[in-house]
Computed example of a mutant assay.
Amino acid sequence: MSTLSRRSFITASLGSAALLSLGLVGCADDSDDAGTTTSTASSSGSEENSVTSDPGVQSIVDRGTLKCGIKTDVPGFGYDDPSAGTYTGLEVDLCYAIAGKIFDMTADEAKSGKKVDFTGVTAKTRGPMLDSGELDVVAATYTITDERKESWNFSDPYYTDSIGMLVLKSSGMKTLDDLDGKIIGIAQGATTKDTLTQMLKDQGKENLNVTFQEFPDYPTLSAALSSNTIDVFSVDRSILRGYMDDTNELLCPDIIFGTQEYGIATNKNATELTKLVNDLVDEYKDNGELDKLLEAYGLQSA
């Protein structure tokens, strides 16, 4: 997986993407509508009935917008880009594509018609916001796990990632043994702690004295690393890439652990919406549109 700087992600343009139709080896030691379209008709009458028969989908049609939860601090996936004045990223475009399916239009038309209301979420808030009905879908680097599937529905995966550990170059940390006595910063509500603990056990390093400290979001974690408040910033590698610069680097990058798949989540009761979302993801994987988006945002699935 190639390493990209945060600047490269931030300067990535949504325009080109939006126009799409939418080993482990040893180491040394997520406004008003411009249009009035509310049709959910499709090329197949049976598909049309399937979509409109779902109270959840019909309520979205009646409302006129799809409520999507996204990350706003993960360049390449979901990012509130101040230079563009809008949200950019793979998951943002997937939300436009889902809205296009619901409102019988292209993803680009859904974007220009303001058919999506975006809300920033964190690992801690995204599940509860689905439960409360504040959100219809969540596309926010949401790892699919058996435990989470008991509470929410997930689409088939659209991205595969693994966990990484970002350290300052000036720290001199090079091996797993260098983690002894160190503070590892993680995001609230994430599965990183358990995954990293298991990796240390697998590597025979379970006796290392490691302390975990939780933070509410990734910019705060990045700032904590830069100020030496923490020694390690650990989260999905795709997220870390958006915060890499000349001052930091991955610790033991050749140790691949915590392999995980991202899916789009929906409320457990939203059966028809779940099917619509899953069909969209599968369609994008089959017709090459997902690969185009990954390339457009400089992403490479593991």
Rank of each mutant, 00 (worst) to 15 (best):
S21I: 11
V74T: 09
S59E: 02
S170C: 10
Y284G: 01
L273D: 00
V116H: 12
T36E: 11
E109R: 12
I60Y: 03
G85E: 02
K101C: 07
F77L: 08
L24T: 15
S16H: 09
L179N: 11
T65M: 04
N209W: 00
E289V: 01
S151I: 14
Q260R: 02
D246N: 07
A107P: 14
G172S: 13
V51C: 11
A190D: 09
T266V: 09
G89I: 05
T65A: 00
S39N: 15
Q58P: 00
D286W: 05
G113I: 11
K169M: 14
L225K: 04
I184R: 11
I239C: 08
V74F: 07
A17D: 11
S5W: 04
Q300H: 10
T191L: 12
W152Y: 15
S222I: 00
M173L: 13
L166V: 09
N153I: 13
N278C: 04
S5Q: 08
A187Q: 15
R241A: 12
L130T: 05
A190V: 05
F77H: 07
P253S: 01
T88A: 14
L221Q: 05
F233G: 04
G26Q: 15
V277Y: 00
G26Y: 15
I184G: 05
V92Q: 04
K101I: 07
E48L: 06
I102E: 10
G69V: 00
L240F: 02
